[in-house]
């Protein structure tokens, strides 16, 4: 029994990290159709923000999370204004442009912050394990799980209940018509891109104390994020949640039965087969696009 519980908790932890990392990408890709290859570097920037704040101001992790969100959102907003904005009509070129941005960001960090691994402090009260239903679970992993749920809820409310979310859904469906109704589409897109980047920043800040902080830490993150988003169906937040949950549990199980190398290969294989037969992902939403 405790074995099964252990396995479920491992899977949930993997799933929450996957969801956390892919939430921002899902929003940018799902609503704007921009394939943002610099997403991993937004995650990396979030982690470096924490490192910078802790090193210079000795801040605890919690305030750093807030700063990371706004700092990386600002970076995202700037990148949207300067580069991505001019490429909405050329979706394939955004791939190359955002990939270029990712290389610039990565090397920029290497040059300014240095190439060595960086130390980010885990809050003392979260650095041990706590018993849950008779199983020892890492307190920090529970913390990540809870925060991911909170971010998910906030994102849902933002999209479903606010005027901005209403405008965004309108723009996503038909840009020209929504413009006719007085919605500033350009502004909506800027904000969306910034919000997605900010979420990636928080993700980076949250995983930094558990993993390691280095200039190329985003490379793995962006691959995981794309896998989740593509499998979930690009336009569906619920699809992203479901897909993160499935991939997390399955890779946890495979890694336990075989090992991490095999698990990674098999999960990719599974996703490739799946999108061969379900190109829209498991949760495709039929919407009219303008």
């Amino acid at each position: 029994m405790s074995d099964i519980l252990n396995q479920v908790f491992t899977g949930l932890s993997l799933a929450s990290i996957l969801l956390l990392v892919s939430l921002g990408l899902a929003i940018i890709y799902g609503t704007m159709g921009v394939i943002n290859l610099a997403h991993g570097e937004f995650v990396m920037l979030g982690a470096y923000t924490v490192w910078f704040l802790q090193k210079n101001f000795g801040l605890d992790l919690l305030p750093c999370l807030v700063v990371s969100f706004f700092a990386v959102a600002a970076a995202g907003w700037l990148i949207e204004r300067l580069i991505v904005r001019h490429l909405y009509k050329r979706p394939l070129d955004t791939i190359l442009a955002t990939w270029g941005v990712s290389v610039i960001l990565q090397q920029g960090i290497r040059l300014t912050a240095g190439a060595e691994l960086r130390y980010v402090k885990m809050p003392g009260w979260l650095s041990n394990a706590v018993p849950v239903l008779g199983v020892e679970v890492s307190a920090y992993r529970i913390f990540i799980f809870v925060l991911t749920l909170l971010l998910l809820a906030a994102t849902y409310l933002l999209f479903a209940r606010t005027r901005y979310g209403f405008s965004l859904r309108a723009v996503t469906q038909n840009q020209e018509v929504s413009r006719c109704f007085g919605i500033n589409a350009a502004r909506v897109y800027s904000l969306t891109f910034a919000y997605g980047a900010g979420l990636a920043g928080v993700a980076g800040a949250l995983i930094a104390p558990l993993k390691s902080v280095s200039p190329d830490m985003g490379t793995g993150a962006v691959i995981d994020a794309f896998m989740v988003v593509v499998m979930g169906g690009v336009a569906s937040l619920m699809g992203t949640v479901a897909s993160a949950a499935i991939i997390g549990q399955v890779s946890g199980l495979l890694a336990f039965v075989y090992n991490d190398t095999v698990a990674k290969a098999l999960v990719f294989f599974g996703v490739v087969i799946l999108i061969r037969f379900m190109p829209e992902g498991i949760f495709s939403v039929r919407v009219r696009r303008g």
Binding site: L14, K211, D216, G220, A255, D260, T261, A263
Partner: peptide, 11 residues
């Protein structure tokens, strides 16, 4: 054996 650069050790 874990892949080079692997950072998820929960399993």
């Amino acid at each position: 054996y874990v892949p080079l650069g692997h950072s998820e050790f929960s399993s």
